[in-house]
Protein backbone atom coordinates (compact mmCIF):
# COMPACT_ATOMS: atom_id res chain seq x y z
CA UNK A 1 0.00 0.00 0.00
CA UNK A 2 1.19 3.50 -0.72
CA UNK A 3 1.83 5.98 2.06
CA UNK A 4 -1.34 6.40 4.14
CA UNK A 5 -2.90 9.86 4.38
CA UNK A 6 -3.46 9.57 8.10
CA UNK A 7 -1.53 7.30 10.37
CA UNK A 8 -2.32 7.06 14.07
CA UNK A 9 0.23 5.18 16.14
CA UNK A 10 -0.53 4.06 19.68
CA UNK A 11 -2.56 7.17 20.42
CA UNK A 12 -3.64 7.77 24.01
CA UNK A 13 -5.71 10.59 25.45
CA UNK A 14 -5.81 11.31 29.17
CA UNK A 15 -8.10 13.42 31.31
CA UNK A 16 -6.93 14.20 34.83
CA UNK A 17 -9.89 14.25 37.23
CA UNK A 18 -10.32 14.55 40.96
CA UNK A 19 -10.57 10.78 41.17
CA UNK A 20 -7.43 10.08 39.19
CA UNK A 21 -6.45 10.06 35.54
CA UNK A 22 -8.89 8.45 33.09
CA UNK A 23 -7.99 7.29 29.60
CA UNK A 24 -10.85 7.74 27.12
CA UNK A 25 -8.50 6.67 24.30
CA UNK A 26 -5.90 4.04 25.09
CA UNK A 27 -3.27 2.88 22.62
CA UNK A 28 -5.24 3.18 19.38
CA UNK A 29 -3.52 2.68 16.01
CA UNK A 30 -4.96 2.86 12.54
CA UNK A 31 -4.20 4.13 9.04
CA UNK A 32 -6.42 5.66 6.40
CA UNK A 33 -5.30 5.53 2.78
CA UNK A 34 -6.02 7.88 -0.10
CA UNK A 35 -9.67 7.74 -1.16
CA UNK A 36 -10.47 5.28 1.60
CA UNK A 37 -13.39 5.51 4.01
CA UNK A 38 -12.56 4.12 7.43
CA UNK A 39 -15.60 3.58 9.60
CA UNK A 40 -15.05 4.03 13.33
CA UNK A 41 -17.87 2.40 15.32
CA UNK A 42 -18.55 1.97 18.98
CA UNK A 43 -21.14 2.80 21.57
CA UNK A 44 -21.24 6.08 23.45
CA UNK A 45 -18.17 6.46 25.61
CA UNK A 46 -16.06 4.17 23.44
CA UNK A 47 -13.70 7.04 22.60
CA UNK A 48 -14.44 7.21 18.90
CA UNK A 49 -15.14 10.97 18.79
CA UNK A 50 -12.33 11.67 21.24
CA UNK A 51 -9.84 10.01 18.87
CA UNK A 52 -11.19 12.11 15.98
CA UNK A 53 -10.93 15.32 18.00
CA UNK A 54 -7.36 14.45 18.98
CA UNK A 55 -6.41 14.28 15.29
CA UNK A 56 -7.59 17.82 14.57
CA UNK A 57 -6.40 19.19 17.89
CA UNK A 58 -9.85 19.97 19.23
CA UNK A 59 -9.54 18.23 22.58
CA UNK A 60 -11.10 20.27 25.34
CA UNK A 61 -8.84 21.03 28.26
CA UNK A 62 -7.93 19.24 30.47
CA UNK A 63 -8.04 16.35 27.99
CA UNK A 64 -4.72 15.97 26.21
CA UNK A 65 -2.73 13.57 24.06
CA UNK A 66 -0.60 11.60 26.47
CA UNK A 67 1.16 9.28 24.11
CA UNK A 68 1.52 8.08 20.57
CA UNK A 69 1.94 9.81 17.25
CA UNK A 70 -0.35 11.21 14.55
CA UNK A 71 1.07 11.49 11.03
CA UNK A 72 -0.66 13.31 8.20
CA UNK A 73 0.85 12.94 4.71
CA UNK A 74 4.21 12.07 6.21
CA UNK A 75 4.28 14.97 8.69
CA UNK A 76 3.88 14.48 12.40
CA UNK A 77 1.03 16.72 13.55
CA UNK A 78 0.33 15.82 17.17
CA UNK A 79 2.92 18.26 18.63
CA UNK A 80 1.49 21.18 16.61
CA UNK A 81 -0.22 23.92 18.56
CA UNK A 82 -2.02 27.21 18.10
CA UNK A 83 -1.53 28.89 14.75
CA UNK A 84 0.15 25.91 13.06
CA UNK A 85 -2.74 23.64 14.01
CA UNK A 86 -5.29 26.26 12.95
CA UNK A 87 -3.73 26.43 9.47
CA UNK A 88 -3.96 22.66 9.22
CA UNK A 89 -7.64 22.56 10.14
CA UNK A 90 -9.77 23.35 7.14
CA UNK A 91 -6.78 23.26 4.79
CA UNK A 92 -5.59 19.69 5.23
CA UNK A 93 -8.32 18.27 7.43
CA UNK A 94 -12.01 19.00 6.89
CA UNK A 95 -14.52 18.39 9.64
CA UNK A 96 -18.22 17.49 9.51
CA UNK A 97 -20.12 17.45 12.76
CA UNK A 98 -23.39 15.87 13.79
CA UNK A 99 -25.55 18.96 14.11
CA UNK A 100 -25.41 21.08 10.95
CA UNK A 101 -27.12 24.06 12.58
CA UNK A 102 -24.53 24.55 15.31
CA UNK A 103 -21.59 24.10 12.96
CA UNK A 104 -22.60 27.05 10.76
CA UNK A 105 -22.44 30.70 11.77
CA UNK A 106 -26.06 31.96 11.90
CA UNK A 107 -24.98 35.58 11.25
CA UNK A 108 -23.14 34.98 7.97
CA UNK A 109 -24.56 33.89 4.63
CA UNK A 110 -23.37 30.50 3.42
CA UNK A 111 -21.48 32.25 0.60
CA UNK A 112 -19.55 34.37 3.09
CA UNK A 113 -18.67 31.33 5.14
CA UNK A 114 -17.46 29.37 2.12
CA UNK A 115 -15.51 32.33 0.72
CA UNK A 116 -13.92 33.09 4.07
CA UNK A 117 -12.73 29.52 4.47
CA UNK A 118 -11.27 29.45 0.97
CA UNK A 119 -9.56 32.82 1.32
CA UNK A 120 -8.03 31.78 4.63
CA UNK A 121 -6.43 28.72 3.13
CA UNK A 122 -6.00 29.42 -0.57
CA UNK A 123 -4.40 32.42 -2.32
CA UNK A 124 -7.50 33.62 -4.19
CA UNK A 125 -9.43 36.86 -4.46
CA UNK A 126 -12.85 37.49 -2.93
CA UNK A 127 -14.67 37.35 -6.28
CA UNK A 128 -12.93 34.13 -7.27
CA UNK A 129 -13.78 32.69 -3.89
CA UNK A 130 -17.45 33.56 -4.38
CA UNK A 131 -17.43 31.91 -7.81
CA UNK A 132 -15.92 28.81 -6.35
CA UNK A 133 -18.44 28.90 -3.51
CA UNK A 134 -21.28 28.67 -6.04
CA UNK A 135 -19.53 25.78 -7.75
CA UNK A 136 -19.04 24.08 -4.38
CA UNK A 137 -22.74 24.40 -3.52
CA UNK A 138 -23.68 23.06 -6.94
CA UNK A 139 -21.40 20.12 -6.43
CA UNK A 140 -23.11 19.10 -3.18
CA UNK A 141 -26.47 19.21 -4.94
CA UNK A 142 -28.07 22.43 -3.71
CA UNK A 143 -30.61 23.52 -6.30
CA UNK A 144 -30.35 27.14 -7.45
CA UNK A 145 -26.88 27.55 -5.90
CA UNK A 146 -26.30 30.96 -7.46
CA UNK A 147 -29.35 32.42 -5.68
CA UNK A 148 -28.96 30.53 -2.44
CA UNK A 149 -25.39 31.69 -1.95
CA UNK A 150 -26.78 34.74 -0.15
CA UNK A 151 -29.09 32.78 2.13
CA UNK A 152 -28.49 32.34 5.83
CA UNK A 153 -28.20 28.88 7.42
CA UNK A 154 -31.67 29.07 9.01
CA UNK A 155 -33.22 29.33 5.55
CA UNK A 156 -32.05 25.82 4.70
CA UNK A 157 -33.59 22.51 5.78
CA UNK A 158 -31.59 20.07 7.87
CA UNK A 159 -30.42 18.00 4.93
CA UNK A 160 -29.50 21.08 2.88
CA UNK A 161 -27.56 22.48 5.85
CA UNK A 162 -25.56 19.29 6.12
CA UNK A 163 -24.77 19.64 2.40
CA UNK A 164 -23.50 23.17 3.09
CA UNK A 165 -21.33 21.80 5.91
CA UNK A 166 -19.91 19.19 3.53
CA UNK A 167 -19.19 21.89 0.95
CA UNK A 168 -17.47 23.87 3.68
CA UNK A 169 -15.38 20.90 4.79
CA UNK A 170 -14.28 20.13 1.24
CA UNK A 171 -13.86 23.65 -0.18
CA UNK A 172 -10.14 23.95 0.63
CA UNK A 173 -9.58 20.48 -0.84
CA UNK A 174 -8.31 18.74 2.29
CA UNK A 175 -6.66 15.34 2.08
CA UNK A 176 -8.58 14.05 5.11
CA UNK A 177 -12.19 14.58 6.20
CA UNK A 178 -13.36 13.62 9.66
CA UNK A 179 -17.12 13.08 9.68
CA UNK A 180 -18.42 12.71 13.23
CA UNK A 181 -21.95 11.21 13.14
CA UNK A 182 -22.78 13.19 9.98
CA UNK A 183 -26.24 11.70 9.50
CA UNK A 184 -27.42 10.97 13.03
CA UNK A 185 -29.63 14.06 13.20
CA UNK A 186 -31.19 13.44 9.78
CA UNK A 187 -34.16 11.44 8.50
CA UNK A 188 -33.64 8.12 6.75
CA UNK A 189 -34.26 9.40 3.23
CA UNK A 190 -31.98 12.43 3.73
CA UNK A 191 -29.36 10.23 5.38
CA UNK A 192 -29.20 8.12 2.23
CA UNK A 193 -28.65 11.28 0.15
CA UNK A 194 -25.86 12.57 2.38
CA UNK A 195 -24.04 9.23 2.56
CA UNK A 196 -24.11 8.81 -1.20
CA UNK A 197 -22.88 12.40 -1.65
CA UNK A 198 -20.01 11.89 0.77
CA UNK A 199 -19.00 8.67 -0.97
CA UNK A 200 -19.09 10.24 -4.42
CA UNK A 201 -17.10 13.37 -3.53
CA UNK A 202 -14.42 11.46 -1.70
CA UNK A 203 -14.00 8.95 -4.47
CA UNK A 204 -13.70 11.72 -7.07
CA UNK A 205 -11.13 13.68 -5.11
CA UNK A 206 -9.28 10.84 -3.45
CA UNK A 207 -10.03 12.29 -0.02
CA UNK A 208 -9.49 10.00 2.95
CA UNK A 209 -12.49 9.88 5.29
CA UNK A 210 -12.77 8.97 8.94
CA UNK A 211 -16.48 8.19 9.34
CA UNK A 212 -17.39 8.09 13.02
CA UNK A 213 -20.82 6.62 13.72
CA UNK A 214 -22.73 4.22 15.93
CA UNK A 215 -24.89 3.02 13.04
CA UNK A 216 -23.71 -0.33 11.71
CA UNK A 217 -25.92 0.01 8.65
CA UNK A 218 -24.25 3.27 7.60
CA UNK A 219 -20.82 1.67 8.08
CA UNK A 220 -21.82 -1.34 5.99
CA UNK A 221 -22.88 0.86 3.10
CA UNK A 222 -20.21 3.52 3.18
CA UNK A 223 -16.97 2.23 4.68
CA UNK A 224 -14.14 0.28 3.08
CA UNK A 225 -12.61 -0.77 6.37
CA UNK A 226 -13.98 -0.57 9.88
CA UNK A 227 -12.42 -0.03 13.30
CA UNK A 228 -14.53 -1.20 16.25
CA UNK A 229 -13.78 0.59 19.51
CA UNK A 230 -14.67 -0.48 23.02
CA UNK A 231 -13.84 1.43 26.20
CA UNK A 232 -11.15 3.53 24.52
CA UNK A 233 -9.36 0.63 22.85
CA UNK A 234 -9.48 -0.84 19.42
CA UNK A 235 -11.35 -4.14 19.56
CA UNK A 236 -11.25 -5.10 15.93
CA UNK A 237 -9.98 -3.67 12.65
CA UNK A 238 -10.45 -5.03 9.18
CA UNK A 239 -12.25 -4.88 5.83
CA UNK A 240 -15.89 -4.01 6.45
CA UNK A 241 -17.33 -7.16 4.93
CA UNK A 242 -15.16 -9.44 7.04
CA UNK A 243 -15.69 -7.62 10.30
CA UNK A 244 -19.44 -7.33 9.95
CA UNK A 245 -20.24 -10.78 8.63
CA UNK A 246 -17.49 -12.80 10.32
CA UNK A 247 -16.55 -10.87 13.45
CA UNK A 248 -13.53 -12.17 15.36
CA UNK A 249 -13.90 -10.21 18.56
CA UNK A 250 -16.67 -11.33 20.93
CA UNK A 251 -17.74 -7.69 21.36
CA UNK A 252 -18.20 -7.14 17.63
CA UNK A 253 -20.05 -10.41 17.47
CA UNK A 254 -22.39 -9.37 20.30
CA UNK A 255 -22.90 -5.93 18.80
CA UNK A 256 -23.84 -7.32 15.40
CA UNK A 257 -26.17 -9.89 16.91
CA UNK A 258 -27.99 -7.32 19.04
CA UNK A 259 -29.12 -5.17 16.12
CA UNK A 260 -32.79 -5.84 15.35
CA UNK A 261 -31.86 -6.32 11.70
CA UNK A 262 -29.87 -9.43 12.50
CA UNK A 263 -32.72 -10.95 14.49
CA UNK A 264 -35.18 -11.39 11.67
CA UNK A 265 -37.81 -13.87 12.72
CA UNK A 266 -36.35 -14.34 16.17
CA UNK A 267 -38.51 -13.68 19.17
CA UNK A 268 -35.74 -12.13 21.27
CA UNK A 269 -32.74 -10.02 20.44
CA UNK A 270 -29.27 -11.15 21.42
CA UNK A 271 -28.16 -9.35 24.57
CA UNK A 272 -24.70 -8.45 25.75
CA UNK A 273 -25.04 -8.59 29.54
CA UNK A 274 -24.06 -5.54 31.56
CA UNK A 275 -22.86 -2.19 30.29
CA UNK A 276 -19.62 -0.55 29.22
CA UNK A 277 -17.39 0.02 32.27
CA UNK A 278 -16.95 3.57 33.51
CA UNK A 279 -13.63 5.08 32.56
CA UNK A 280 -12.75 5.51 36.22
CA UNK A 281 -13.50 1.87 37.02
CA UNK A 282 -11.75 0.16 34.13
CA UNK A 283 -11.27 -3.54 34.83
CA UNK A 284 -7.80 -5.14 34.66
CA UNK A 285 -6.83 -7.07 31.59
CA UNK A 286 -9.30 -6.92 28.73
CA UNK A 287 -11.92 -4.21 29.35
CA UNK A 288 -14.60 -6.45 27.87
CA UNK A 289 -13.96 -9.53 30.02
CA UNK A 290 -16.78 -8.94 32.58
CA UNK A 291 -19.31 -9.07 29.72
CA UNK A 292 -17.57 -11.61 27.53
CA UNK A 293 -19.01 -15.11 27.08
CA UNK A 294 -15.58 -16.56 26.26
CA UNK A 295 -13.59 -14.86 29.03
CA UNK A 296 -10.94 -16.98 30.73
CA UNK A 297 -8.42 -16.45 33.51
CA UNK A 298 -5.89 -14.93 31.11
CA UNK A 299 -8.35 -12.19 30.08
CA UNK A 300 -8.73 -10.94 33.62
CA UNK A 301 -5.09 -10.15 34.29
CA UNK A 302 -2.88 -10.01 31.26
CA UNK A 303 -2.86 -6.85 29.17
CA UNK A 304 -4.45 -7.14 25.78
CA UNK A 305 -2.55 -8.51 22.84
CA UNK A 306 -1.67 -5.89 20.26
CA UNK A 307 -3.89 -5.75 17.21
CA UNK A 308 -0.86 -5.39 14.91
CA UNK A 309 -0.98 -7.83 12.06
CA UNK A 310 -4.07 -9.59 13.39
CA UNK A 311 -7.61 -8.41 13.20
CA UNK A 312 -8.85 -8.32 16.76
CA UNK A 313 -7.42 -7.49 20.14
CA UNK A 314 -8.54 -10.65 21.89
CA UNK A 315 -6.77 -13.61 23.44
CA UNK A 316 -9.46 -16.01 22.30
CA UNK A 317 -10.92 -14.60 19.10
CA UNK A 318 -13.83 -16.29 17.43
CA UNK A 319 -11.97 -17.93 14.59
CA UNK A 320 -13.93 -17.84 11.42
CA UNK A 321 -12.86 -18.25 7.90
CA UNK A 322 -12.42 -14.88 6.32
CA UNK A 323 -14.94 -13.93 3.69
CA UNK A 324 -13.45 -13.19 0.35
Amino acid sequence: MSEPVLSIRNLSVEIPTRHGVVKPVDGVSYDIGKGEILGVVGESGAGKSMAGNAVIGLLNQPAHISGGEIWLNGTRIDPLEGEAMRKLRGKDIGMIFQDPLTSLNPLLTVGDQLAETMQTHLPISRSDAMKRAVAALEEVGIPGAAERINSYPHEFSGGMRQRVVIALALCAEPSLVIADEPTTALDVSVQAQIISLLKRLCRERGTAVMLITHDMGVIAEAADRVAVMYAGRLAELGPVRNVLTKPNHPYTHGLMASTPLAAQGQRRLHQIPGAMPRLSLMPDGCAFHPRCPNAQEKCRHEPLPSIDGGRSACWFPILQEAAE
Binding site: S157, M160, V190, A192, S196, G217, A220, E221, M256
Partner: peptide, 18 residues
Protein backbone atom coordinates in the same frame (compact mmCIF):
# COMPACT_ATOMS: atom_id res chain seq x y z
CA UNK B 1 -33.13 4.27 1.82
CA UNK B 2 -32.64 2.53 5.17
CA UNK B 3 -29.06 1.31 5.51
CA UNK B 4 -28.74 -2.44 5.10
CA UNK B 5 -26.44 -4.56 7.17
CA UNK B 6 -25.43 -6.52 4.08
CA UNK B 7 -25.41 -3.51 1.78
CA UNK B 8 -21.64 -3.43 1.33
CA UNK B 9 -20.72 -0.72 -1.13
CA UNK B 10 -24.35 -0.55 -2.19
CA UNK B 11 -24.93 2.02 -4.89
CA UNK B 12 -28.56 2.98 -5.20
CA UNK B 13 -29.93 6.24 -6.47
CA UNK B 14 -30.80 8.06 -3.22
CA UNK B 15 -34.36 9.30 -2.76
CA UNK B 16 -35.22 12.64 -4.30
CA UNK B 17 -36.23 15.74 -2.41
CA UNK B 18 -37.26 16.26 1.19
Amino acid sequence: AAPKMDGFGREIPPPQGE
